[in-house]
Design a protein around this nucleic acid. Structure first.
Lengths: 215, 215
DNA sequence: ACCTGAACACCGTTCAAGT
DNA sequence: ACCTGAACACCGTTCAAGT
């Protein structure tokens, strides 16, 4: 059974407003002025609803731009994916909780693999490159916790027991950049890691790297 | 209030056996032959229990090895973290769900930052390098979904609509390597990405890279 | 003062009763 | 045949009653 688009749109909107924890079948039914059990006409269960929500979000990512520079195409699309995730913060946890890739995710990954292949990366290298990117392909920051925001990096007072982290935080605080409250610049950090990886891939391509693991 | 070690050990053991979804306050109390409310003598609430469990797992990671080669020290410790996570698969989701870093995580990150600094990376570079590594510092694979296991990469039949992914899967299936069932070699992919990042960091260090974002 | 059982306010989903 | 409300088996946590 496929989740009806009306239910799906309502679920995405509700999660955007209330967060994913507050999205229950009962609450969603209430939003649609419908009895809870009526939802089960449109979705088999909550998992299928979440599958549909994940796919709806992934479909918001821009299609690949045209152009000969594979690094530029990949970069632009991943930054688009990141913008989508910033619009739907709950989507990270929903996508992560899927047991397997949903159709829109598969289509996205297939398209991304095509961009690498068209850029001249071998199938072997493309395979490992896709693994190395992992969830970053979908715009995941892969950070351990959110260091942006008004509170900045969560380091205790000046007499901290974490001298090295304190030093890093002090360095970040001295930065100008686009941050105001002393937090880290998420966008800068994301692009730093992304470009480091893309440059690394391009180096391997130029060197004709292979995994050399054939039997 | 600090979670008692007995309750913590029981919770970790229970999660190892039954998975994190089955770990409820009621089930844990039953395991300890105790009435559910008795747990609240030792933990303020379930979140505090999960905090304690996350810390208990992080404390299992090996201390840093001695040695002049920072790449080797970082690499060894992250691979130790990965082994810990493979012993406690539920820990990934528990650590991710913490709103901020727990004490053991802070101590680990501080120690890791110290290794980078001792290796000659500037505070500036260390800061961005730690962000770029993100959850990988704790051994997270950061993959979108599990492609190992007997089923291998989850690609539909031969007449698939995902030709590029099919090609990559075929390449992986032809590999010898340590995999048996045609799945991807998680350990190889993890080390591939890790080494790519560490080499990238070392290049930036040699070039005297700075973020050049000072006000 | 301490412990604890019942109760509260939820949850996803089953199922039988009503139309 | 279809819809739906009550019910089931949970959950984390509150709170009042009992010792």
């Amino acid at each position: 059974m496929k989740a009806a688009t009306g239910v799906l749109r309502a679920a995405v909107a509700l999660a955007d407003v209330t967060g994913i924890d507050a999205l229950s079948m009962r609450r969603l039914a209430q939003e649609l002025n419908v009895v809870p059990m009526a939802l089960y006409k449109h979705v088999a269960n909550k998992e299928e609803l979440l599958d549909g929500m994940a796919d709806a979000v992934v479909r918001e990512i821009d299609p690949p731009a045209a152009g000969p520079d594979w690094q530029r195409v990949v970069r632009g699309r991943i930054l688009s994916a990141r913008r989508v995730l910033l619009r739907h913060p709950w989507a990270v946890r929903v996508i992560e909780s899927r047991t397997g890739p949903t159709p829109a995710v598969l289509a996205y990954l297939d398209s991304m693999a095509g961009t690498f292949r068209d850029g001249g990366l071998s199938a072997d290298l493309t395979h490992h490159v896709m693994h190395a990117m992992g969830s970053r392909l979908l715009g995941f920051s892969q950070e351990l916790f959110d260091t942006s925001g008004p509170s900045g990096p969560p380091v205790p007072g000046p007499a901290t027991h974490y001298p090295n982290i304190a030093e890093l935080a002090a360095t970040a605080a001295h930065d100008g950049g686009s941050t105001v409250g002393g937090g880290c610049d998420d966008q800068f950090e994301f692009e730093f890691a992304l470009d480091l990886l893309l440059d690394g891939f391009e180096n391997l391509r130029r060197q004709g790297w292979t995994s050399a693991r054939k039997a």
